[in-house]
C-alpha cells in the first residue's frame, strides 16, 4: 500500500490502513522520541500517542507535505511536551527521589543492554554522559541534533521538519556540536568516566 493510499484509507477510518501505517513508521517515530527523551519505555509511550494523534487528525493532513515529515513534527512536539512536563514534576521532587530516578535509569540501561556482550559498564556511563549533554542543549539545537544523529536526516529534511531555512539548521547543528564538545571536554578533564 502506497503512502497516498494509506492516507486516503485512513481518512475513511480504515483499520488495516492504520495498522500498515504503524508498522511502516514505528521505527522512525520510536527512534525520534528516544533521541529526545533517552528512555525506551517513555519513547514507546510517546510514539503510541503520536500514532493516536495521527489517527484522529488525519483529515487535517495536507497532501503536499510528506507523511514522514508530519510524523517527525508530531513526534518532536510530543517529546518536547513530555520533557517539559517531566521537568515540572522533577522540580517538586525531593533530592532522594531524583537520586532514585537516576539509579533506576542506570539499572534500566543495564537491563536493556545486558544481552549484548559488547555493551559494558563503560558504554553505559558514556550513554548517560552523552544523554545529559544532549538534554542540556537548547531546544532547537537538541531537535536538530537528534534528527541528524538518530535519524540521519539531511540538512534540508531537518529544515523541512523544523520549518527553518537550511542555513539556520547548519548553524543550529554547528552550535549543538560545539556545546556538546565543551561539555564532553569538561567531563574528560574531570575524569567523569
Amino acid at each position: 500500500m502506497s503512502e497516498a493510499e494509506i492516507i486516503e484509507q485512513l481518512k475513511s477510518g480504515s483499520e488495516p490502513a492504520f495498522k500498515q501505517l504503524v508498522e511502516n513508521y514505528q521505527k522512525l517515530v520510536v527512534n525520534t522520541c528516544f533521541g529526545m527523551v533517552h528512555n525506551k519505555h517513555d519513547a514507546e509511550d510517546i510514539a503510541q500517542d503520536v500514532f493516536i494523534e495521527v489517527y484522529r487528525s488525519v483529515r487535517k493532513f495536507r497532501a503536499d507535505a510528506k507523511l514522514s515529515t508530519w510524523l517527525y513534527r508530531i513526534a518532536v512536539n510530543r517529546s518536547l511536551n513530555f520533557i517539559r512536563d517531566n521537568k515540572k514534576r522533577k522540580w517538586f521532587q525531593s533530592f532522594e527521589d531524583s537520586v532514585e530516578t537516576k539509579t533506576k535509569a542506570l539499572q534500566n540501561l543495564a537491563a536493556t543492554k545486558s544481552d549484548q556482550p559488547g555493551f559494558q559498564l563503560e558504554n553505559q556511563q558514556r550513554a548517560v554522559l552523552l544523554h545529559e549533554a544532549i538534554s542540556a542543549l537548547p531546544k532547537n539545537q537538541k531537535v536538530a541534533f537528534t534528527l541528524s544523529k538518530y535519524e540521519d536526516l539531511s540538512y534540508s529534511e531537518i529544515a523541512e521538519v523544523m520549518d527553518l531555512s537550511v542555513s539556520s539548521v547548519e548553524s543550529l547543528l554547528h552550535r549543538a556540536k560545539k556545546n556538546l564538545q565543551k561539555k564532553l571536554y569538561r567531563c574528560y578533564k574531570k575524569k567523569c568516566l
Partner: peptide, 29 residues
C-alpha cells in the same frame, strides 16, 4: 574518548520492532 562517546548514538538506534506495539496503540486508542 569523544569518538567512543559519540558512537553511543549509533548503538542506540533501534533496529528491532516491538511486536506488541500496534496492539498497545489500538488498546490505548
Amino acid at each position: 574518548d569523544i569518538k567512543k562517546t559519540l558512537q553511543v548514538t549509533e548503538n542506540e538506534k533501534s533496529t528491532e520492532v516491538n511486536p506488541f506495539f500496534y496492539t498497545r496503540v489500538k488498546a490505548k486508542l
